[in-house]
Amino acid sequence: MRRDYLNWAIGAVGLALLLVIPNVTDQFQTFMFAQVAAYAVAVVGLNILTGYSGQISLGNGAFMAIGSYTTALLTARAGWPYLVTIPVGGLLAGLVGLLVGIPALRLRGIYLALATFALALSVTPVLNNYDKLTGGHLGVGFKAVTPPFDIPLSNEQWLYFLGWIIFFLVFVPAWLLLRGRTGRAWMAIRDSETAAAANGVGLAYYKTLAFGISAFYAGVAGSLLVIDFAYVNPDSYSLNLSLQLLVAMVIGGLANIWGPLFGALLVVWLPYMAEKAVNSKPDLAFGALLIVVVFLAPNGIAGLLRRGLLVLRGRRREAGQITGALEATPAEADQIAT
């Protein structure tokens, strides 16, 4: 029972922290934490696709762009209330994700990585090309959002709460999905497609589903991000964005449900700190962190914390036995050593 208390305690502290942050940080910091929520949603989506179902996607930024432009265009041009555009952006991205997922079924491993890499690089030029719709280089802007019903919150605080409410709205279903049958099916596919198929897991169904759901999360995240800035332009959807999602997923903790939170914190705050500390872009730090994490802590920050907690509870043995999707199993390692 001690274990349950500890989990509840961590949950309570986390929730308290979330409520306290917007009251003790300045406007800029609150705004940054609002963005963390959006990135966290996107990384949950990528984690489902790559971390759990094992399909390498370097192109989830493309699905984010769909959510972003849906929200921006519907709000700015059609006068829709921005809140309504969030599910629309998510669903539209999800639909495209399903469609992308079908040909992706036939691209295994590295080929899928290649194709999604090409997808990531294609977003900006495509957005620039169809400038009648997207506004081209100039982008699309709309009136900054303000708290509804005269709630006594600053704009940033409203964005913050909006972001985190949406985060929990989409996080809980993801959590349930991953704990259940679907999550098990995805992991089975990731670990061995042959074995999964032999056990009656429908590969096509689950793999396409992962694409669709992942893209839905990316779309919602894209919507949220645009609502934060009340502006979008094609340059935000360069390869860099997709790489940041990957960095966040890996460093936060691959195939760990809590990993996206840590990863999103990192990719939002590190660029700012790199700018402040050494007046430089964060790529160097991201790249170095990525390799160090893969080498020393393949389960990311969340994995390290989990290990720490297990040690705290005096279950060292279990702590030593955590293996992740990035490591070869002992049997494989032996084969490789030959």
């Binding site: 199993t329 002992p330 049997a331 494989e332 390692a333 032996d334 084969q335």
Partner: peptide, 9 residues
């Protein structure tokens, strides 16, 4: 007295 194993096997 040579022993050998493939992973756990």
């Amino acid at each position: 007295d040579v022993h050998a194993s493939y992973g756990p096997i």
